[in-house]
Design a protein around this nucleic acid. Structure first.
Lengths: 439, 439
DNA sequence: ACAGTTTCCCGTAAATGC
DNA sequence: TGCATTTACGGGAAACTG
């Protein structure tokens, strides 16, 4: 589960003054008490420096003076002794590695002394690495700074920390690094936000969001009621309580744990409103169904809706959502395969995945195979699997691909980010968070 | 989950010499890094002592000198500062409370220097509380010792630590406290061991083991092959790898988490051999079943066997065991209620719990009730519940009570133990371990 | 290589602070 | 009192260490 995030800053020695590069922000999430490692590379790799330069990490050096934020929490490194000398590397770099860093809060002052009152996941911190270089009779102080860091104390804070990371990322493409970002957080356009959201799904489930899915999300997120022609989204609406993000994050988690395959296959339409579901299904033959995420469940749940025509009525049924706990007990394909209505326990009412893929064509490969019976035991079956007459011929599965142009754009962005990451300071944390696996 | 275990030692001031009582051992399990509290009470409650006496906890004071064990792990208290003054109590006692104690290993010497090589859960330690009393111009040192303590570093060590605790407990009724007990652990008789085992079930599930259950266990545990007329059990056989204890502990855990009700009701025969199962069921009407613990699964699993007479044959079927994971997904009563054989999915082959209690009479009250349907959702049902013709009249449920005499003996033992526990030093740990809840 | 032991850390629950 | 944040620690797994 180790993640490698490269945070950077150039430490070019020009004359006597070190120059720090200012590059786009890609913050990191660090949890107190959890180990991470950091490394600093010196671009000026003169043999004279080797084993002579001592680098020291400093948390939030000078930040309260240089930002508009005051009353931040204070942190210190648990192992302050981790000042490590420089090391030569096979690739010719001059690198200092800090192997066992971790943070603890140092409650020096009564917090809230200066009431800027950001939520903890809105506080942006930095780790700086400082050294004093002695060279040719001159001495100069060099600093290399990490990208902004969000410090949390419990894994339950990851979703909101991640919201901050995403917001930051989007804004950093247009603005310089700003640790006070969330004092007055700039809004995003739907254009920007939809891009980050799609990334999350690409990252977690190897498939981004298509236009239909994004359009459903847009309707849910963007408030067009007031004069808001550009589809501006405000931070508070996105991230604060009962927020869309928490809902989406729950779904991402559900995909990561239980639905990667189906999501990757494109068999989960997921983001479809009830109304659209009805519109799509009502014209289809009885037994056509689609898979959607529950809009009401805050913890991430998936369900399916199916159509049934009887007595001249069009009924679209929505099944009670499956949560993480449910899917742990039985996978979604098995749940689909064994689904029955109580009126008729012999027949599976789910026949065709919208538009017209036979259930077994889509999910057959995921049905759990009967284990080889253990000697002497009668096998148990939780559910009945009714035989079904041969289905009508159906076209090969249609992948709900995302727009190729959009995919192109995303790929390019990844390259941009990757390209700007090949250097001097990076942190490694043992926490796994989706976005970073691209760096 | 807080457990209150009272460990004791008398600190009677007689002349200048404190006298320590030596009482039966009831060791405690402490995990490194996990908080526990300790309190010492002074029996000599003179007003002059109040707020004057300082008590200091010492881990393993003098133990390596006084025992045959060397090369023990060393531990220290995390918060060494926890020396607390005496406090007056509403009940008139003079008590020192140590509120936030926890242990950390201090790896002073390279372990194994003296190769006594006990397993860590076989090491017995003590915590002593020492003070120097100044009174009437005399000064004397008082020590109060805790009962033996087993120190573990991971919860995965609890089962084997618990084995040590039980073994110790049984032996302490006949022998003086001996921290070197496991250097050459004395064997137990089946008479002694069966008693402790029954306690565990009484403690976890409010019901001990009856004679039939114990007899099955005896056949499993006691090796009568060699000349062993008294049914002697050796420590290594009981506790070492692939041991019976680990198997039993898994079952205790299963009961604690998933089967308390059924166990308490006496509906789980549990410890029945396959052969006995066959003998019991073969004479009974088709559909008679009983619940037993899997003998093969090491992690604790439960299953049921049922009889079927057809074509003049007597078939006794054993169902694939249900593990913790299975029972988390569906409770045992629901699994019984929804059980089907694949040959006939409409009919539940389980009719009468041995000897002749109708399935629903025994388990009906535990079937999960349908939740009130959530608006707009079609309810899901994992399983079919077939109607069944009215069962033949059956006598009221028979509780498989344990022998009243045995119960009497157990009760008395508890009282003995309780009576000897009403005093001066006790430790509170946040870990919950079965036996201790009786103290 | 390996077994016994400890460390690491997520996720949940409880405790704490404000 | 309620909410935001931290702490606690069981449980599973990885890392350690002879």
């Amino acid at each position: 589960l180790s993640l490698l995030t490269k945070l950077l800053a150039n430490a070019l020695v020009v004359e006597k003054q070190p120059v720090m590069s200012s590059l786009p922000q890609r913050p990191l999430i660090l949890k107190t008490g959890v180990r991470f490692t950091a490394a600093v590379r010196f671009l000026a790799n003169l043999p004279e420096f080797k084993c002579r330069v001592k680098v020291k990490p400093v948390f939030d050096k000078d930040v309260e003076e240089t930002t508009a934020v005051h009353g931040l929490r204070h942190f210190a490194f648990n192992r302050d002794n981790s000042k490590v000398l420089d090391v030569d590397r096979p690739d010719g770099g001059l690198v200092a590695e800090f192997a066992h860093m971790s943070l603890k809060e140092s409650k020096t002052r009564p917090r809230g002394s200066c009431e800027s009152r950001l939520g903890v996941t809105e506080e942006l911190h930095v780790i700086k690495f400082v050294t004093e270089l002695q060279f040719a009779g001159l001495s100069c102080n060099i600093e290399a700074s990490s990208l902004p860091v969000v410090v949390i104390s419990s894994t339950s804070q990851i979703p909101s920390a991640w919201a901050s990371v995403m917001w930051c990322n989007m804004l950093s493409t247009s603005e310089p690094r700003n640790l006070s970002l969330f004092v007055d957080p700039p809004p995003l356009t739907w254009q920007q936000l939809s891009q980050v959201l799609s990334w999350q799904f690409l990252s977690v489930g190897q498939r981004g969001l298509d236009e239909d899915q994004l359009s459903m999300l847009r309707d849910k997120i963007v408030d067009f009621s007031t004069d808001n022609p550009d589809g501006i989204i405000h931070w508070d609406k996105f991230s604060k309580n009962e927020s869309v993000w928490i809902w989406i994050d729950g779904i991402l988690d559900l995909i990561k744990r239980h639905l990667v395959d189906l999501w990757q296959d494109g068999y989960i339409m997921g983001f479809v409103s009830r109304k659209t579901t009805w519109d799509l299904l009502k014209e289809k033959p009885t037994g056509t169904f689609l898979i959607r995420f529950s809009e009401s469940s805050k913890e991430g749940a998936v369900t399916f809706s199916f159509v049934e025509h009887s007595n001249g009525e069009n009924n679209v049924h929505a099944v009670e959502p499956y949560t993480k706990k449910d899917l742990l007990a039985q996978s979604l394909p098995d749940s689909i395969d064994s689904y029955r209505m109580k009126e008729d326990l012999t027949r599976n009412p789910l026949l065709y995945l919208y538009p017209d893929i036979h259930r077994d064509t889509a999910f057959g490969r995921y049905y759990s195979t009967e284990k080889a019976p253990i000697t002497g035991y009668v096998t148990r079956r939780r559910v009945q699997v009714a035989d079904y007459p041969t289905p009508p011929p159906s076209p090969p599965p249609v992948r709900m691909d995302i727009d190729p142009d959009a995919e192109q754009v995303i790929q390019e962005l990844f390259h941009d980010i990757y390209d700007s990451c090949g250097s001097p300071v990076w942190l490694t944390s043992y926490q796994d968070t989706p976005l970073t696996q691209y760096f």
